[in-house]
Amino acid sequence: MTWVRLDILGWAALAVLLAWLPPRRTQPHAVAALTLVFLSIHAPLSAAILSLFALGSWALLAHENHPTQRLLLVVGAVVVTLVSFKLGARPQFPTDLGTAVVPL
């Protein structure tokens, strides 16, 4: 998956449109929703991982005065997943940077 593909360029153009056309308060949310749809189609595993990390990190760190263990849990989960993901993406590097680093 790279930027140099017409269909990906189409998604980018749609994102730009959604950044300005909907009512002002919902514009960033529309872009985020589009990104989720995009990832779900092109890299469903990435979409699931990123969603899980987003909600998990928010839930674990939502309150003030959270213990260090929660931070270590979030960081550890991200590192383990990232390393596994990189190992799986090894054959593509460095010819396909996009595949190798989603989700960053």
Partner: peptide, 20 residues
């Protein structure tokens, strides 16, 4: 808020290869 954090993580231009 949570929705602002989600907008940050699901921002299409930086999904592929950053920048961070």
């Amino acid at each position: 808020r949570l929705d602002q954090y989600l907008c940050y993580l699901f921002f299409l231009p930086i999904i592929f290869a950053g920048p961070i």
